[in-house]
Each structure stands twice: as structure tokens, then as C-alpha cells.
């Protein structure tokens, strides 16, 4: 597991639901075909209403044109991030677009679980309401050992909540690797 995650911030609000993260009409593409799955990166976060997309200004596209990768790799969210459907296409599309971490005030349960068990990215929590502090495009650094998030653009540092009991699955990589490490399933 990487000890440092660096990247540009993309800031969203409260209750970002899975239909905003990946609208249902796009759920038809293969998640395993290397070419076809690029569509998920292209359509990631395209359901977010314009005024909420890339705060505080809004109307900032997450990916440009036909690109499937975003220049933003750290998502900042408010409360109840990822509410709604159980579609794993939601954390998957964000990973395909290049997201390495999400830092939110709180998460909806299934989205959080999918992010961890599928090993798509690390879902951090922060008690500070970062949505009002960090601006889209700010240069961020997450230090996993110190459990902090630094905003290099604004010279500010925030404490992150401990990852708690899911750290073992995150360190293993995903639920399968964790189960192999603990002897629950046979090593491949």
C-alpha cells in the first residue's frame, strides 16, 4: 500500500448519489474489457448537477471531452457520499478515471464497502467539513502514516479519521487478498 497519495482536488457537496456518480444508462458497459471499461471513466460524475460539479465555482467537468482519465485524483465530499444504488460501477468508474482517494464527512454503507472490498481507492473520513475549505484544483497530499491531509495550495493540514478495522482489507488490496492472507480461501 502506498504511504503517500498526491493529486488535485475535485470538490463535491452532500448526498452525492450513485446516479450522479454514474447515470444508469451507462451501466451497460463491461467492467472487465480493458477498452470497453474506459467508457466508465468518460462518464464518471457526469450525473452531478452543473452547479454542484467542482465546488466552489461549479460547472467544472471532471473529465474533458472523450478522455477517460481525469486530472483530478482526490475527491472531496460532504455527508453521505455514495448514497443510493449498490452499483459497484460507481467506485469503479472513479478508479478508472484515476481517483486514488475520496475524503468525505461520511459515506453511505454499500458504497463504502464496495470501495474497500473491491480495492478501488481508499475512502477516508474527516470531521472537518473540507467541502468549505478546499477548492477544486487545490494540490493535496494524503499521508497514510501520519493520517493527515495537507492542502499544499493553501498551506493547511487536517487530521483524518483512523481507517479502523477495514485497514486490514485495504492493506491486503481487496477482500479476496485479505481472505487469502487469513487462510479463509486458498492462495492462488
Amino acid at each position: 500500500m502506498k504511504k503517500i497519495i498526491e493529486g488535485l482536488a475535485y470538490v463535491l457537496g452532500n448526498d452525492v448519489d450513485t446516479d450522479q456518480i454514474i447515470p444508469a444508462e451507462h451501466l451497460v458497459y463491461s467492467l472487465s474489457d480493458p477498452e470497453e471499461k474506459k467508457n466508465y471513466g468518460k462518464f464518471a460524475l457526469t450525473g452531478v448537477p452543473g452547479e454542484q460539479a467542482g465546488l466552489p465555482e461549479g460547472n467544472v467537468s471532471f473529465t474533458e471531452g472523450d478522455n477517460f482519465e481525469s486530472k483530478y485524483s482526490i475527491i472531496i465530499g460532504g455527508k453521505n457520499f455514495g448514497c443510493g444504488s449498490s452499483r459497484e460501477h460507481a467506485p469503479a468508474c472513479m478508479e478508472i478515471a484515476g481517483v486514488r482517494a475520496v475524503v468525505a464527512q461520511s459515506y453511505a454503507r454499500i458504497f463504502y464497502r464496495n470501495s474497500v472490498d473491491g480495492g478501488f481507492f481508499i475512502p477516508f473520513e474527516c470531521e472537518t467539513r473540507l467541502v468549505e475549505e478546499i477548492k477544486t484544483g487545490d494540490d493535496l497530499k494524503i499521508d497514510l502514516e501520519a493520517n493527515t491531509l495537507s492542502n499544499k495550495t493553501q498551506n493547511k493540514t487536517y487530521d483524518l479519521k483512523s481507517l479502523g478495522e477495514v485497514i486490514d482489507i485495504i492493506e491486503a488490496g481487496n477482500i479476496f487478498e485479505y481472505a487469502r492472507k487469513t487462510g479463509m480461501i486458498a492462495s492462488s
Partner: peptide, 18 residues
């Protein structure tokens, strides 16, 4: 309860989930 593809694949192979 609802789960994602990864957890469902885990159940398909093991019959168990955390």
C-alpha cells in the same frame, strides 16, 4: 441487504461474507 459485484463474487465462490 444489497452488496456490490465484488462481495457477490466472493459469496459465489465461498458461500460466506463478512
Amino acid at each position: 441487504t444489497g452488496i456490490g459485484n465484488t462481495d457477490a463474487a466472493f459469496i459465489l465462490g465461498t458461500g460466506k461474507i463478512w
